[in-house]
Nucleic acid binder design. Structure first.
Length: 470
RNA sequence: GCUCCCUUCGUCUAGCGGUUAGGACACCGGCCUCUCACGCCGGUAACAGGAGUUCGAUUCUCCUAGGGAGCGCCA
């Protein structure tokens, strides 16, 4: 039987880190086994579901390259099917209408809590024989077995047993006939022939209910694998309080999909001491059964480390393209300046994110930004004016404006004049970038271009002389 | 409150009865060096507690503590 997994988010919010990891594990499990991955949107909550969320989820999945074989299916388009199954259940006396009001249910729960017992529906309508009260549209409840226990072997956690006495008769349809979650998942997983349900462990308590519905429907329940939660830095479940929620936010912040995926893979799963996994290795090595049992804390610093790694590793094409987009989005005119790829290759050793890279690269695409006061004060002194000018003149005559010859000129200048490398390098750096920090000097000059470099050096010289004399 | 689940350095983790308890991020030193980084070398740091089982427990069992999840006409 071919393995079929699915990712079934509800579009009531954005796709966040926890969801992405569940999606990744589902995708990997399908790929690893040569199976299929299905995308399904659980939008039965029409009040909270939004198209914007659907779009963000799908876009996030695409950005990460978690492509699906089937779907996306929308539950709101399957209502006739759910109604059909509900009627089937009703006919076979496996479900029943319940006329209890929300208020009555609420007071019942409060009484139960006060009595120290688990709040759950007391089944008062299960064996109701009285005629339906007029004017009340009932909900439909599933007849959960009264005795026995549900046992299942979680792929990750092993055997889990829950007594039916812990379970009440859950509502499967609202008064208006719209179905509810625990019911639609079952119908969908059944109809879509899902073999392996991989989801967050906040669903373990729902699993026995769903298995009971599968049984009532005479269908074989899938295998279940409950992955542990991801916690925020405060040890609490990851939520909107922990910074960037949407995966797309990570894209905006300059993270690479391969970094995010690699990070998430290692959160709860490992392969010996290996930290870096290519997409092929992930698919090849991933094993659902060896996923950890315990929740793990999200650590942004390690994500950053992986991002640094992927910024400078592997094929650069996509990353350079993305970098170019971000430079343009920053309002920079890429026509006037060095090739984006050249800048990328120079900056990739020193940027943690693409956003940081953009910030550090503005200097190549804008007019001289002016001097950082502290840097200028420290390095642009009158004593350097003369050597700076001499050096400028040598560079001015350089016919081949590439990093290597630029560096040769500097080396020769230092050798001939006896000026220490460090004594002249920083003044040049400040002169051309305005700050004391930049990539290697020869590379910086090269990227800036000869004309621009000469202009800035002249400007700096004039600035030094006017400052010292004035 | 009830039910279910979890517990190795600060964090992510390796371990699958006998190890100086390993790796990674972060942190702290050092080297490299034209700045910032990269890189390299080194260091600090953990088996929640208690009973068993066993010649021997991080590893197996139970209890306690702590943490998480669920108990919706949300998914």
């Amino acid at each position: 039987m071919t393995i079929r997994t699915r990712f079934a988010p509800s579009p009531t919010g954005y796709l966040h880190i926890g969801g992405v990891r569940t999606a990744l594990f589902s995708w990997l499990h399908a790929c690893h086994n040569g199976g299929q991955f299905v995308m399904r949107i659980e939008d039965t909550d029409r009040l909270r579901s939004t198209q914007a969320s659907v779009d963000a989820i799908l876009e996030g999945m695409q950005w990460l390259g978690l492509d699906w074989d089937e779907g996306p299916f929308y539950q709101t388009q399957r209502f006739p099917r759910y109604t059909e199954v509900i009627n089937e259940l009703l006919e076979h006396d496996l479900a029943y209408p319940c006329y209890c009001s929300r208020e009555a249910l609420e007071t019942m729960r409060e009484q139960q809590k006060a009595a120290g017992i688990k709040p759950r529906y007391d089944r008062r309508c299960r064996d109701r024989t009285a005629p339906p009260p007029p004017g009340v549209e009932p909900v439909i409840r599933f007849k959960n077995p009264l005795e026995g226990a549900v046992e299942f072997d979680d792929v990750i956690r092993g055997r889990i047993v829950i007594s039916n006495q812990e379970l009440d008769d859950l509502i499967i349809a609202r008064p208006d006939g719209t179905p509810t979650y625990n019911f639609t998942v079952v119908v969908d997983d059944m109809d879509m022939a899902i073999t392996d349900v991989i989801r967050g462990d906040d669903h373990v308590n729902n699993t026995p209910r769903q298995i009971n519905i599968f049984n009532a429907l005479g269908a074989q329940a899938p295998r279940y694998a409950h992955v542990p939660m991801i916690l925020g830095g405060d040890g609490k479940r990851l939520s909107k309080r922990h910074g960037a929620v949407s995966v797309l936010e990570y894209r905006e912040q300059g993270f690479l999909p391969e970094a995010l995926l690699n990070y998430l893979l290692r959160l709860g799963w490992s392969h010996g001491d290996q930290e870096i996994f290519s997409r092929e290795e992930m698919v090849d090595l991933f094993d659902l059964g060896t996923v950890n049992h315990s929740a793990s804390t999200f650590n942004a610093q390690k994500l950053v480390w992986l991002n640094e790694h992927y910024i400078k590793t592997g094929d650069l094409t996509d990353k350079v393209a993305r970098f170019g987009e971000m430079l343009a989005a920053d309002g920079l005119n890429l026509e006037h300046g060095p090739a984006v790829r050249d800048v990328y290759e120079v900056q990739m050793e020193r940027a943690k994110t693409l956003v940081e890279m953009v910030e550090k690269s503005r200097v190549f695409y804008t007019p001289f930004p002016g001097f950082d006061e502290k840097a200028a004060h420290k390095y642009l002194k009158l004593v350097v004016a003369e050597p700076l000018e001499a050096l400028r003149n040598r560079w001015q005559r350089l016919p081949d404006w590439r990093a290597e010859p630029i560096h040769d000129v500097l080396k020769q200048f230092v050798a001939e004049t006896g000026i220490k490398f460090g004594k002249i390098a920083q003044p040049v750096r400040v002169a051309i970038t305005g700050t004391a920090v930049s990539p290697a000097l020869d590379k910086t000059l090269w990227l800036l271009g000869q004309e621009q470099s000469m202009q800035r050096l002249s400007h700096a010289l004039a600035w030094i002389r006017s400052r010292e004399s004035g």
